[in-house]
């Protein structure tokens, strides 16, 4: 899974992988469990992850990346033009002002888009092309639309 703050995933299957997988399983983190990255540590090597019950655990990125996971949420800012998949807007991580701004710009939850450019972001939806700033992209949480 991509190691960025606010990314979320669901575990698909667990392999032992040098004791790591087995320990996760014995802690109750199983296939079907939901993980959310809440903090990425210095230089990205250690991450704080929230598991189902709101329990917080620290893991190493390397081991987390090797888990078989399905991405279910990621901030738009972590994506780039290379990802030629379609995405759906899932939620906005912002206050009232931000929600209003999104509404005014006709960016809505469950809109499906493709990324045309990532510097700054240009999204192609069926309503046309929308430009989104860096800061805004961090607050827009999307999921793969398949």
């Amino acid at each position: 899974m991509k190691i960025v703050e606010n990314a979320e995933c669901v575990i698909q299957s667990v392999k032992d992988n040098g004791g790591f997988g087995n320990r996760l399983v014995q802690m109750g983190v199983l296939p079907g469990s939901h993980l959310k990255i809440i903090r990425v540590g210095f230089k990205g090597s250690t991450v704080e992850v929230m598991i189902d019950q709101g329990q917080s655990i620290a893991l190493r990125s390397k081991e987390l990346e090797m888990l078989d996971c399905k991405l279910v949420a990621i901030p738009l800012s972590a994506l780039s033009t290379g990802d030629d998949e379609k995405y759906r807007i899932k939620k906005f991580n912002g206050g009232q002002g931000f929600l209003k701004k999104m509404k005014d710009r006709k960016i809505n939850i469950s809109d499906i888009f493709e990324i045309i450019d990532d510097h700054p972001f240009e999204l192609k939806t069926d309503k046309g092309i929308i430009a989104v700033g860096r800061g805004e992209a961090e607050k827009i949480i999307v999921e793969p639309a398949d």
């Binding site: 040098g18 004791g19 790591f20 320990r23 917080s56 655990i57 620290a58 893991l59 190493r60 081991e63």
Partner: peptide, 9 residues
């Protein structure tokens, strides 16, 4: 070394 999984209470 043992695998690193640490609870943050």
């Amino acid at each position: 070394p043992e695998p690193f999984i640490m609870e943050i209470p």
